[in-house]
Design a binder for these strands. Structure first.
Lengths: 195, 195
DNA sequence: GTCTATAGGCAGATAGAC
DNA sequence: GTCTATCTGCCTATAGAC
């Protein structure tokens, strides 16, 4: 079934965000220009400014849409999977898919340039990590309760480690887009909490 | 005893690299300018160009010195510690110390902006990861041999995971310079390979 | 919504005096 | 080695016509 597209943004605005998103995830927020996007979409930078008056506003739109989509992806996992172990596997696959497209996690790359970001984008980065953390904690707690998962430190600490490992594995593996190395690490992660 | 300073670079050049290093580790290579360094050292950008004709060359000098110092730090560990477990602990402390100074691992942040870097800096980033990997592999292999460490996947895969986790933990923890969270993750790492 | 034209700033970099 | 002065290019952003 066709998913009705959200109409908050115009179609052009969406395409701008699409391109900006790819550029952020490959080069970082400060390392692409309105000209880069304009060229690719065959419009002018003046038109870009009509849709997003400033680059900071484009950045905010970017992180806002990303947060929405990521929350939806987590929702899909919760909806279609019952077992904690399967949920964790699906979670790592979300990250793997980013690397497969030769990108870095958007908030991971934004975390690297955190100091240089406009305030609203900083908040968005922190919220992303917190949301990951919360979701992982829930899954881990559920798995510990039904005895499908087993771990010694707190769910909170394990969640922090899982998130860190996935972010770091992407960061290190992306230069040569080494999916195998990434997956080997992700597998260890799952094994480390499986009962 | 006083360590005789390497005389490859002039004292001014060293100070330039000191400032540049801090700026790279906090803002990223593309997010500071010659003007930033010049202001801080109370010299002009023209003087900077005398020492480092281009920013790419400054970047290369930066990564070269960093590689030297990091290799020396690993050498110190090898020299002063015998037990693999103690070596791993000292290794994680190297990373912790970077975060304590509210910085990100230099090559971690450079990995984030990898696509935008001049070729020599790219190579330096890859070499840094490889050297970390090699050193960790040696320690792990040694620990497996003397039965002080225990792990199921290959030493190679464990080394990759350790490196990834530390890089990711720094990336995620730096926005609020949360040393405790970083250390909690590092402890899990050590526990996961301790016999 | 998209365009042309342009402002204003900052970037990396160079020439040449001292 | 450090300076003043300057160049060139790119960047974000705006005015105003269509």
């Amino acid at each position: 079934m066709a998913v009705p597209r959200r109409r908050t943004q115009s179609r052009t605005a969406e395409r701008i965000i699409d391109v900006a998103e790819r550029l952020v995830q490959t080069r970082g927020f400060n390392n692409f220009s309105y000209a880069d996007i304009a060229t690719e979409l065959r419009i002018t930078t003046a038109s870009l400014h009509y849709h997003f008056p400033s680059k900071a506003e484009l950045g905010s739109a970017l992180t806002a849409r990303h947060a929405e989509q990521f929350a939806a992806a987590l929702g899909q996992i919760d909806q279609h999977m019952a077992e904690p172990r399967a949920k964790l596997e699906a979670f790592t696959r979300l990250y793997e898919d980013v690397l497969r497209r030769e990108r870095m996690c958007m908030c991971g790359i934004l975390a690297a340039e955190y100091e240089t970001l406009p305030k609203p984008m900083r908040s968005a980065v922190l919220r992303f990590f917190e949301e990951n953390q919360r979701w992982l904690e829930d899954v881990l707690t559920q798995g510990r309760a039904d005895k499908s998962l087993s771990f010694t430190p707190s769910a909170d600490e394990i969640a922090q480690r899982i998130l860190s490992t996935l972010e770091g594995a992407m960061l290190v593996a992306r230069p040569d887009a080494d999916l195998n190395r990434f997956n080997a690490t992700a597998q260890q992660l799952l094994a480390s909490v499986t009962a």
